[in-house]
Each structure stands twice: as C-alpha cells, then as structure tokens.
C-alpha cells in the first residue's frame, strides 16, 4: 500500500522525468547517429542497419573524413583564433568608452552601431566583395579575419558595455582621485576585472566565426576554405559516401562542441547578452 501511495504522490514527478528523458533522447538522436556511423568499420556501413550500434569500433569513416577536411579545419582555426582575440580587445575598449566615457550623442551612435549586428549580410555583400578585391584581401584568411572583426564590433562592444555597466562608478572615482586617467583607469581597474567578459566574448566570436558560411563562401577560394564550406561541398558531391559525410559533420562540429561542453556557462551568457540588451 505504502508503495502504491508513494507512487501515486510521486506520479507527476516521474511523468516529468520520463517526458524530459524522451525529449532529451530526441535531441540527442542526430548526434547519436553521427557518432555511431563514424565509429563503424566500412564493412558494417549499411543503410538498413544505420541505427544499430557498431559491433566493433573502427575509425575508417573519421579517417576518411579527416583526410578531406583537415586542411580546412586548419584554415578555420587559423582564421578563428586571431579573429576572436582581435574582436575581444576591440570590444573591450569600445565597451569601456561607451559605458564610462559617454560623449554627447554616444547612445545614438551606439544604437546605430548595434543595428549592424542585425542586418542580413546579403545587403552589404556585393560592396564587401568589391572592396576586399580592391584592397587585395579577397581569397586570403587575413581578409576573412578582418571581416569577422569588423562585423563583430556591435556584439562584442555590447557585451562589454553591459558588463562594465556593472562596475561601480565609485571605484573609478577612487582611481580618479589617485590620479589615474582614461588609460590608467582601464589598465588598473577595468581590465583586471574583465576576465569573465573576455571569456564570454572570446567564446562567442570563436563560435560565430567558426560557424560562418556566407562570408567564407564568397571571400575565399578552395585553398582557404574553412571547414563549413568544405563540408557543404563534400555533402553536395556524389562521390563521398553518406557515412563519411556524417563522420565529417561530427568532425566539423567538434571544436565548437568541445567549447560548449567545457565552457557552456560562458557560452550561455554570450547568447543571452545578444538577446537581452540592457
């Protein structure tokens, strides 16, 4: 009886866990398929048994995909890391000025800057390509880095501005009395408090630039393709088997997935900063 009564009372809880578990399985299904396909030996790859676990672990598919994607994965990392670093530094100083040294009309200027993060990039794509060709940076990773840094200005400045708005004015006033100026206040007070802000912005820009497809596909040639363009190309080809495509998709997702798994908390903050503007 007691068991039954406990069950009855706990039923909503149990139902809740069952429902959530089912939903979680549904969300994980695509990754499950990518993973088990990647781990099967070629001999076991068959559409009919695609949902079954491998009977033996092999890395045939991953190696096949790695072979094709590695140069592009390397391009992605060479492009994304400098882009994220430059973006975060620029965002930090912009955020400092726009939160603590507002000039006349600063809010209007800032709003005009923010508009830049919402525009469909198709509306600037033709002039951008012409301009990059003019300054001889089309077809280079440096050009792609420049583009990510510039179009990253709105979001990185916003995250840092909201972050610095929390640092109390009193602390800055104290620094001011001690004789620190614009640079000194940044160097001795703001910057040392900025580490969490930098982590959020670095992760955000890393993910954005890594996942970008549009800029990469119009601004680079085969040799500089980042992994997103290469993967899409691989998926469109008739020669590459579906199993290798799936292993490739997981491989291409891995860098940002790892960042998410280990630094998810900061990733979420970047997301929310983009949505909830202070």
């Amino acid at each position: 009886m007691i068991v039954v009564r406990t069950l009855m009372r706990r039923f909503p809880r149990i139902a809740l866990y069952i429902l959530l578990t089912l939903l979680a399985i549904a969300y994980l299904l695509p990754i499950y398929l990518l993973l088990i396909t990647g781990l099967k030996p070629f001999a076991e790859v068959d559409l009919q048994t695609m949902w079954r676990l491998p009977t033996q672990i092999a890395f045939d598919n991953f190696l096949g995909a790695f072979d094709k994607l590695w140069p592009h994965l390397r391009n992605s990392l060479f492009m994304v890391i400098p882009a994220a670093l430059l973006s975060s530094m620029l965002g930090s100083i912009n955020g400092y000025i726009f939160s603590k040294w507002k000039f006349k009309g600063a809010d209007l200027v800032f709003t005009l800057i923010l508009f830049g993060m919402f525009i469909p990039y198709q509306s600037i794509l033709i002039p951008l390509v012409q301009f990059m060709e003019f300054i001889k940076l089309r077809g280079t990773l440096a050009g792609l880095i420049l583009v990510h840094v510039i179009y990253g200005i709105p979001i990185t400045s916003l995250i840092f501005r909201n972050y610095y708005a929390q640092i109390s004015t009193e602390i800055l006033e104290a620094g001011r009395i001690d004789g620190a100026g614009l640079i000194g206040l940044y160097r001795w007070i703001i910057f040392p408090l900025s580490i969490p802000g930098f982590v959020v912005v670095l992760i955000w820009q890393f993910t954005q630039a890594y996942n970008d497809f549009l800029f990469a596909v119009v601004l680079t040639n085969t040799a500089q393709w980042p992994v997103t363009v290469a993967l899409n190309n691989m998926a469109g080809s008739q020669i590459v088997q579906w199993n290798v495509q799936m292993a490739g998709a997981l491989l291409a997702a891995l860098p940002t997935l790892l960042v998410y798994i280990f630094l998810g908390r900061f990733f979420l903050r970047g997301l929310m900063a983009g949505a909830l503007k202070g």
Partner: peptide
C-alpha cells in the same frame, strides 16, 4: 542537452538532417 545544438553550425545541422 537541449541547448547544445546551438553551438553547432547550420551547415553541420543541415548535412546531418538531410540524411
């Protein structure tokens, strides 16, 4: 679990879901 797809690029999502 519900949030992780957000870290993945639309290209990867598209390639996986096409299959």
């Amino acid at each position: 679990i519900f949030l992780f797809p957000m870290a993945i690029s639309f290209i990867v999502t598209g390639v996986a879901w096409r299959w």
